[in-house]
Amino acid sequence: MTATETLNKEAEELKEQVISWRRYLHQNPELSFREEKTAQFVYETLVSFGNLAVSRPTEKSVMARLIGSEPGTVLAMRADMDALPIMEENTFDFVSKNPGVMHACGHDGHTAMLLGAAKLLSSKKDQIKGEVRFLFQHAEEVVPGGAEEMVQAGVMDGVDMVIGTHLWSTMEFGTVGICSGPMMAATDTFWLTVIGKGGHAALPHETIDSIAIAALVVTSLQHIVSRNADPLDNLVLSVTQFIGGTTHNVIPDAVEICGTVRSFDKDLRAAVPGLMERVIKGITEAHGASYEFKYEFGNYPVINDPEVTKLIEEVVVETLGQEWVEHMRPIMGGEDFSAFQQKAPGCFFFVPAGNKEKGITYPHHHPRFTVDEDALEVGVKMFVNAARKIVMENKENCER
């Protein structure tokens, strides 16, 4: 039996345990920066495996280090742990016990998969040439998130490469999604208040109509994407909140607008706030209004290192077969895994977890979101076989 076959068999034997962990975590979700019980559960579970140096780099995160018998590559693996402020509508027997809080993005599965990998690899300490560092991150769902906080705490010091994965319900189970280079976008946020002069809706000439002016701003902001950005550059500008007015016959003094900007190119990203303010300033001044504008840069884009991505693709082929490789297009969603990639080359890959035959079709952040639990075994196999290739075989082409 080859090393890959042995690891796959051991991962299959852990499947029910990993599912059990996932269901426990699903029943006990905690919001970003409130992962007290989750982190303690992860900490105690890791300690029980033995051979791991387990620590709490920040108050709500956990790190475990599996230090091998010989020097070599330091490989970090990351899973996120936080849940979302959503009231769950699923009916299975392990629904959330915390009203208004739900694992609606798969982080319960991510944590369970990395726990499975840590348990399996902890028994192979003598085969490790280098180190495997297991990072259990808090607060992925907010900006600024927990990844940057963990980086500041030193979890990436000495790391040669980093990998992570995301269960993805809108892709059908049976492949692993790989994307070299830009994969997920930078996530920036803006807030705008258009300030006019309120008054009676029947006498609009006596007002400075903040509703009408703000509507013009929203429409005109779309010209930044269509007329100020290179069509070959990925850019999304979405207004997601438009708040103003209290009743049918009153023009309000002000309208509040909020939204998000997604991009990959750093120069375009830096230019967007100025382009937006030029539009906002021109329209508001032309109509006698004023404005307040705030722009906040969020997570970096996830840019997968070509060499590390090639290694992960090889792991897919060796572990699951060539037919499991799915070359993905980039998506404009964001992920603060990118903070770890600022410190070491890395690869973020997807494990599809949708299954139409099982009725698992709801998107992420939906009250009825769930995953095909068969995907958990795939995630464990990917983690442990990445470790096999990078820090157990420690082939020359894996050293950086």
Rank of each mutant, 00 (worst) to 15 (best):
V236L: 08
D93V: 14
T175I: 10
M102A: 09
G199A: 14
F173D: 00
E277R: 15
P363D: 06
N385L: 14
R34P: 00
E141S: 03
W21V: 02
D82H: 10
G106I: 08
T370R: 02
I128A: 05
A387H: 07
V261Y: 05
T246G: 14
G354Q: 02
N355G: 06
A201I: 03
Y300P: 00
W191F: 15
M382R: 11
A117P: 00
V194C: 02
A104F: 08
T246N: 15
V325D: 03
S122H: 12
I280C: 08
P345C: 10
V18G: 00
C398Y: 01
V236A: 03
E10G: 00
V255I: 11
K15W: 14
C347P: 00
T361K: 06
D253C: 12
V217W: 01
V151A: 04
E326T: 09
P204D: 09
V159I: 11
R388K: 15
V315R: 06
M150D: 05
K97D: 11
G282Q: 15
V54I: 12
V95W: 09
L75P: 00
I67M: 14
I208W: 04
V159W: 05
N28R: 15
G106T: 08
F340K: 03
Y300R: 04
I208M: 09
I178F: 01
M87N: 04
S61V: 12
T187E: 06
Y43A: 08
N90Y: 05
S210T: 05
P252M: 12
A344T: 06
E36R: 15
T370F: 02
M382Y: 12
E314S: 08
